[in-house]
């Protein structure tokens, strides 16, 4: 491979790249946490078919699913300070232009996930046969009891595999953030590459971190799924 790649440089660079993994994890953690909450709200609102809200949610979901995440990040990063800048300055004395760009990235991913997870959750909830909810009511359970004890556990099981795939997708999509100046593992690899004139080692390091962590997540979700299956019948 000539001078393009050297194991020595790779060993030297790898720890530097991996040290920025915390940035990616921070984004994944907050995006998934808030995105999941938003997704549940979206799913419930969609299921109840609230007249005006439902239509607005339809538009929101098609926008989020119909535009690339990178575009949404750009709009969030450049748009939010322009539109809400003056308001935030007045109300809270916060200069949005000075905020860590990671926050705008996270806002974009949370909104994006709200749409995707909302659809996953909605599908999972409606997959539980209505007669089981009726049976819950018929034995005198309240609506909340029926939802939490009958519908949700089964919907959870249906949603879990999709949720896992989505989770890994979000982790990989964090690689987009360096375009907005957030230095994650890929950003670090690029910076180091520019500084040393040798970029392949850095990118390979980033790739290894991505694949290792993705496999780890996949394993964790598979484990969770098999745990859930053990308690119950296979073809439910």
């Amino acid at each position: 491979m000539g001078n393009y790649f050297s194991a020595e440089r790779f060993v030297h660079i790898f720890p530097k790249v991996i040290s920025n993994l915390s940035v990616n994890l921070h984004i994944v953690f907050w995006s998934m946490l808030l995105g999941t909450v938003l997704g549940i709200i979206v799913a419930v609102l969609r299921i109840y078919r609230v007249p005006v809200v439902s239509g607005l949610l339809g538009i929101y979901i098609s926008f989020m699913r119909g535009t690339p995440l990178l575009v949404q990040m750009m709009i969030s990063f450049y748009g939010i300070p322009i539109v809400f800048g003056a308001l935030f300055m007045q109300l809270f004395g916060i200069n949005l232009n000075r905020l860590d760009p990671v926050i705008f990235v996270e806002i974009a991913i949370v909104l994006n996930e709200g749409a995707f997870l909302g659809e996953i959750f909605r599908g999972a909830i409606t997959s539980v046969p209505a007669v089981q909810a009726e049976a819950g009511y018929s034995i005198g359970m309240t609506g909340a009891q029926t939802f939490y004890r009958i519908v949700l556990p089964q919907a959870f099981k249906v949603a879990l595999p999709h949720y896992g795939v989505d989770f890994i997708g979000v982790f990989q999509n964090t690689s987009l953030v360096f375009i907005l100046g957030v230095v994650d593992i890929l950003g670090k690899a690029k910076t180091l590459g520019a500084a040393t004139g040798h970029s392949l080692e850095g990118y390979l390091s980033a790739a290894i971190v991505y694949i290792a962590f993705s496999l780890l997540l996949k394993g964790a979700f598979l484990l969770a799924e098999s745990r859930m299956k053990n308690g119950t019948a296979k073809n439910v």
């Binding site: 046969p129 089981q132 049976a135 009958i150 089964q154 119950t232 439910v236």
Partner: peptide
Amino acid sequence: FQNYGLFAH
């Protein structure tokens, strides 16, 4: 119920 409606889980 006609189609039982047992809690599947």
